[in-house]
Write a protein that binds this DNA or RNA. Structure first.
Lengths: 100, 100
DNA sequence: TTGTAACATATGAATAATGTAATATATGAG
DNA sequence: CTCATATATTACATTATTCATATGTTACAA
């Protein structure tokens, strides 16, 4: 893996490496949701949710469509779901806490 | 996924989300390496490599053992390898660049 | 047009991450 | 002990991330 490639992978990881963004991604696993619904389900101000959604859209993790006054978001880069599952799955036999 | 869990997952992701750290992890997939070898293989100053190694060790991603004057590092949290594979594998059918 | 709901953006402050350069520590040789 | 090699740590400047507040925009109804 050369540096450029590593940089790209790091960018994807950074796009996801935030608790609110992770929770948003988890919500969107079940299909598209509009901003208002996301705000209701997470306990986070609307502006922050919009900021994080915009950030992930910029980084090609999410995509959006407008319907009336609502904007619906879906996952564009499906690999982030695999990423989540890699980590969530392992949290049972978690080796980040204490491995022996 | 509650916030605390999301925070924990985000911490693991952040521990990995850096080009040099990713390259180090890739090197260590093939078994343990001492700091000097890592420095030689990557084009990065020794202090930076030590800093990143220390950071990953703090976050339980790596572990180390000393042998004489050398310190050998290995991967402690094997899940980061799976993470890497999730992302590297997908870079063929990459949806982060342009999906249609 | 005005009003309102839903969402986005701008700004700034606080905090965290990064890289550089210098210095410190540890081990072993002699 | 002194020296050399290997690695770690510190201090600092720079840049990036995050959050909150306030303001702007869009779509639509009346």
């Amino acid at each position: 893996m050369n540096y450029e490639m590593a940089q790209h992978v790091a960018d994807v990881l950074k796009a996801v490496a935030h608790p609110v963004r992770l929770q948003i991604i988890e919500l969107l696993e079940n299909g598209e949701q509009c901003v208002g619904d996301i705000v209701k389900k997470l306990d986070v101000p609307q502006a922050v949710v919009s900021q994080q959604l915009g950030l992930m859209k910029d980084k090609q993790v999410l995509q959006s469509r407008r319907q009336g006054t609502s904007v619906f978001y879906t996952i564009k880069n499906e690999n982030v779901i695999k990423l989540l599952h890699c980590l969530c799955h392992h949290c049972d036999n978690d080796s980040t806490q204490n491995s022996e």
